[in-house]
Design a protein around this nucleic acid. Structure first.
Lengths: 111, 111
DNA sequence: AACTAATATAAGTATAAACTAATATATATC
DNA sequence: GATATATATTAGTTTATACTTATATTAGTT
């Protein structure tokens, strides 16, 4: 569970920009290069990372390489976050009712 | 939208471990140090990053500092992912029906 | 086959970030 | 107030990674 590559991949702001550009629709590498301020080489390297995280996939079209979002990685990420969210929400609900019942138990035991 | 600090914070595997430990419940820094294989100093630094991303919050208890998950950052992350997911899902539905309707339009226009 | 366009890969460099050791701070206890 | 415990912060080092330049690959064009 800890080794969730999509989180790692989206940790970088340039990759996030690329990913968010792709959310608008599939496009070529050259187009993607225009959306960020790094070299074509850097973009290709970022795309590789995103691809390995299954956040994007690639399709050949003539000389072009068309990239688009791959739902697999995003789904993985989504499930991770949802699981977290459910747990945290549950924990907070429990704590809230605990506090509502008897708030100053801890301060009593301390002082 | 691109500058989402929770994604950045959870990009690091050590911080993810700490965060996931906290999901099980609040605990002190010393306890957190035991869950990872880095120094106490490193843990404190990671906690600082997580705190700045509003993924955790801290509360004093005697000499101890009790950390727990802060839903704010997680909610932010959740919303980001959900928005992505919705868009991507929609795009894929559209594309699927487009493919079902007339699959070989592109190959016609190319050749 | 030579040439161009689009992209990927390799190699090296620069930068950021994670880490450690040492020290400072805060709280508690004697 | 001295001492111990828990944690934060500082400074410096190491490591990872993002980046660039140059080159290789792949596909299309003449």
């Amino acid at each position: 569970m800890t080794n969730i590559s999509s989180l790692n991949a989206l940790g970088d702001p340039t990759r996030r920009k690329l990913f968010e550009r792709l959310r608008e629709g599939p496009c070529s590498v050259t187009e993607l290069v225009h959306t960020v301020e790094v070299s074509q080489s850097a973009v290709s390297q970022h795309l590789k990372v995103l691809k390995e995280a299954q956040l994007v996939r690639m399709e050949k079209k003539g000389q072009q390489r068309i990239y688009r979002i791959n739902p697999v990685g995003l789904l993985e990420l989504r499930q991770y976050v949802e699981e977290m969210w459910t747990d945290v929400f549950k924990a907070f609900e429990e704590e809230a009712s605990r506090l509502a019942a008897g708030k100053d138990q801890e301060s009593n035991s301390a002082g």
